[in-house]
Nucleic acid binder design. Structure first.
Lengths: 211, 211
DNA sequence: GCAGAACGCGAGTGATTGCTCACAATACTC
DNA sequence: GAGTATTGTGAGCAATCACTCGCGTTCTGC
């Protein structure tokens, strides 16, 4: 651990350096994707970006900063993708099955983007507290939106919408996560998605929830 | 990556060396638990075990072998714990809710054992192919047992018991995993377990499964 | 066209890591 | 208690990694 903290080092002003930073971010994503976090060395990243190692350290104070930048971008993209869905749940109040289908589809799309990178980012790499807060906020927002929607849909009969919403988010997240990362050779992703919708629909439509 | 492969180096014959190996395994578990895989250095492990670094390398050819030994032991313990459950499902054919409660309880117990170690082993550390096969075999056995049970329980009305079994295993696994590792401050583990049972019960008891 | 800022370079540094090896201590065999 | 196999030791090696620094190149404003 040669360095303790710090966020950004130098701000790219010219177009040239903005391209360098861009190349570094993409290279870092690719290298982490291919080699994992620990084996994704800064020298390798610089090399892959076609940039000197010195230039890397002009814009990122250390390896973790590079990781953080990638995750932040990844999460921002996720939030951007999820935004319309959450808005639709709030404004359109779609019926149960239709809403679930959209949630699951959005989650699958989210995970299918760059599965290997996603795995490294969310399973293997260290997560600084700042990042943790960022992710928690996103998850909380999603859960709240789903809970509101559940409360407004008449078919839903669970006793505790907030808990149910957490379960919905959690289950879709982990099922699609595993679906994408350890693909099932026997059954198509669509089949899995459909069954997940069926599972959630059965649960939410039942009154079995222990109060 | 200073070494390529190899499994075991020397077999402990005297009681003395068996104790050394034991100490090394426990020390490795503790160190990986506390520092993660990458920062869990072999020197630190040897030190914690109260053993020279040379002795470590007499019984384990490299760092990964040490990891593998730990995981294998962890998985074996898991299989041992899961065995009675699977046998009970096969022989007693408990009714839906009772069976689900036992499955979820077993899974929670399995994860609660050493959560930090579990996380490092299953999320962070590299997984050699041999290990992957071992885990797949365990999951397959569990899924098959659950599927057989589902077929025999009259309340279950899903169209595809094997797919349903996979979902059951998958959902209980991931929910309990997250439950133990990222604990929910608002709700008790029991509450989560109960709700998971409710979710699975609603799903399995419904005919909503898309054929 | 020039001064200064921004940018880019990459050999090199210090620290750390996985791991070896020459040797010493202990346990069994007779 | 001699002889041998087993076990234990730890200084140190070779490799690697994150990161620095001195210097050359390109851009911008005037």
């Amino acid at each position: 651990m040669p360095r303790t903290s710090l966020r950004a080092r130098k701000h790219p002003r010219q177009a040239r350096s903005r391209e360098t930073v861009e190349a570094l971010l993409e290279a870092a994503a690719q290298v982490f994707e291919r080699h994992g976090y620990a084996a994704g060395t800064t020298n390798r990243i610089a090399e892959r970006a076609g940039v000197s190692i010195g230039s890397l350290y002009q814009y990122f104070p250390n390896k973790d900063a590079l990781l953080l930048a990638i995750v932040e971008r990844h999460v921002a993209e996720g939030a951007e993708r999820l935004g319309p869905l959450l808005a639709a749940l709030r404004d359109e109040r779609p019926p149960l099955r239709a809403g679930l289908e959209r949630i699951v589809a959005a989650m699958v799309a989210l995970h299918a983007e760059r599965p290997a990178l996603h795995r490294v980012l969310f399973e293997e790499a260290p997560r600084p507290p700042a990042l943790r807060r960022r992710l928690d906020a996103l998850a909380t927002a999603a859960t709240a939106a789903v809970a509101d929607w559940l409360r407004a849909v008449p078919e839903v009969r669970v006793a505790d919408p907030k808990l149910a919403a957490r379960l919905v988010v959690q289950v879709t997240e982990s099922v699609t996560h595993n679906l994408v990362i350890h693909a099932d050779p026997d059954r198509s992703p669509d089949r899995w998605a459909a069954e997940t919708v069926a599972l959630l629909e059965a649960y939410l439509g039942s009154a079995a929830s222990s109060g």
